[in-house]
């Protein structure tokens, strides 16, 4: 997993709430058996509209997605995270994320940043006023920065120490857990024998 320490890039304002994973990547794109190539399916239904924000020339190459509340609701598909990453996004900023999406994003190294609704609104307004504006997501200092002087925005965001450390180190979860294989084995020895088994005999 690629470490995430700090990232600076242009932002794309997606003014929609309740963006569910069926919108992020429709079911018909889920059939691949690899982990790459999902960018074509990102917001596929909306991208057929030339006026959709991802189609506007001023937002090409954006790496920071600004979205309305309840981003990533619906199905647990991790492809939603891959589609955003394959397209080039490193982080998503929203007033509220669906739990499963947030979990999936953190595992894949896509940073979900939760900010107050007014703050997200202010960021969207700033980016719409100047699409070339760069937004910095600084995980090290747990803050978002954009613009300068009076118009500048600097806001802190919350993330727990453990998650932050893992992201900054780019640590893979399985490797972390396997360091405790002995404890897993000891737990298995204590499990009651009547617990269900899928293979019999």
């Amino acid at each position: 997993m690629e470490p995430f320490v700090t990232h600076t890039g242009r932002a794309v304002p997606l003014r929609r709430s309740n963006v569910d994973t069926d919108q992020i990547i429709p079911a018909s794109y889920l059939k691949r058996v690899t982990r790459s190539g999902f960018e074509d399916g990102l917001f596929a239904a909306w991208r057929s509209d030339p006026g959709f924000v991802l189609n506007l020339p001023q937002y090409q190459g954006g790496t920071v997605l600004l979205a309305g509340p309840d981003f990533g609701t619906g199905s647990s598909r991790e492809h939603a995270v891959w589609a955003l990453q394959n397209y080039g996004f490193r982080t998503v900023i929203s007033p509220r994320f669906a739990d499963i999406f947030r979990g999936n994003a953190l595992k894949g190294g896509l940073l979900p940043v939760q900010l107050a609704e007014e703050t997200v609104e202010a960021l969207m307004a700033a980016v719409e006023a100047d699409p070339a504006l760069e937004v910095t997501v600084d995980l090290d200092r747990r803050e978002i920065r954009t613009g300068s002087g009076e118009a500048g925005i600097v806001v802190p965001f919350e993330i727990d120490d453990y998650t932050r450390w893992r992201l900054m180190e780019g640590l893979d979860d399985i490797g972390l857990t396997l360091r405790h294989a002995g404890e897993v084995g000891a737990f298995e020895d204590r499990r009651p024998s009547w617990k269900p088994r899928t293979l019999v005999g």
């Binding site: 991790e78 492809h79 979860d173 857990t177 396997l178 294989a181």
Partner: peptide, 16 residues
């Protein structure tokens, strides 16, 4: 769970 968690459970039978 998501696909990386599926991999995690397959490999370790646990989840953090």
């Amino acid at each position: 769970i998501g696909t990386s968690e599926v991999e995690h459970v397959l490999a370790t039978q646990t989840l953090p």
